[in-house]
């Protein structure tokens, strides 16, 4: 009943040699699984981030995380690209306002597949300190582009960003297949209580605010 036509079509075709889930379950054809594993390993260890920062998170994520003490190069993500054509990781570091939103969408559209998005900091998750009484702040990067990993903090420490980066690497390693690049598991956020999703939290915040106006 609740299954969309596309999903039911996929389920009728299975078991297929190109089954989406066979790669990460390590049960599919031996050749394709190994190639998937190899490609995913290579992709996950050479994430090239786009240099994109809109506020204070950029100092933490672009500069502190990349500098010698914390050293982003340990995880293969130090090759910051100033052009979206050459980048495959978009780190949304900072507040997104109404005027910036179309530019962010353009940058995301200009990146080549496979592309990944990490939203760092309170502003990119929900609007953060600007969720209420703001005429311009977009409430979360997910309103503009699909987000893979959320990193909480205001701003997050470099260690927290690394945790988010390693989470993304893990998702790439066991989530994707060559046949279906870009199809991944649902967005994750570290340290969210079990049974509670980001949508629940957001709905609660917005509902509370709507009640206050009436």
């Amino acid at each position: 009943m609740g299954v969309t036509p596309q999903l039911s079509k996929i389920s009728q075709q299975s078991p297929s040699v190109f089954d989406l889930h066979s790669a990460h379950k390590k049960e599919g054809p031996a050749l394709l699984t190994s190639i998937d594993a190899l490609v995913n390993w290579a992709r996950s260890n050479s994430l090239w981030p786009l240099t994109f920062g809109t506020s204070c998170c950029a100092i933490e994520v672009m500069m502190a995380a990349g500098a010698a003490h914390h050293d982003l190069a340990r995880f293969g993500a130090e090759v910051a690209r100033p052009s979206p054509r050459q980048a495959d990781l978009l780190v949304v570091a900072g507040t997104i306002v109404k005027k910036m939103a179309p530019r962010l969408r353009t940058l995301y559209d200009q990146m080549a597949e496979p592309k990944y998005v990490i939203a760092t900091g309170a502003c990119a998750i929900s609007g953060g300190p600007f969720i209420y009484d703001s005429y311009s702040t977009v409430r979360g990067a997910h309103e503009i582009i699909p987000v893979d990993v959320y990193v909480p903090g205001c701003p997050p420490r470099p260690e927290a960003f690394f945790y988010g980066l390693l989470t993304l690497q893990k998702m790439i390693r066991d989530g994707e297949s060559l046949r279906r690049p870009g199809v991944r598991k649902a967005p994750v956020m570290a340290a969210l209580p079990p049974g509670i999703t980001m949508e629940d939290l957001r709905a609660e915040l917005i509902k509370g605010a709507k009640g206050a106006t009436t």
Partner: peptide, 17 residues
């Protein structure tokens, strides 16, 4: 004029407290 104290539009959310 959004920086006036009494500014309100449909996008802006008021604090629930």
């Amino acid at each position: 004029f959004p920086l006036r104290k009494d500014y309100q539009d449909e996008f802006m959310l008021r604090k629930p407290w």
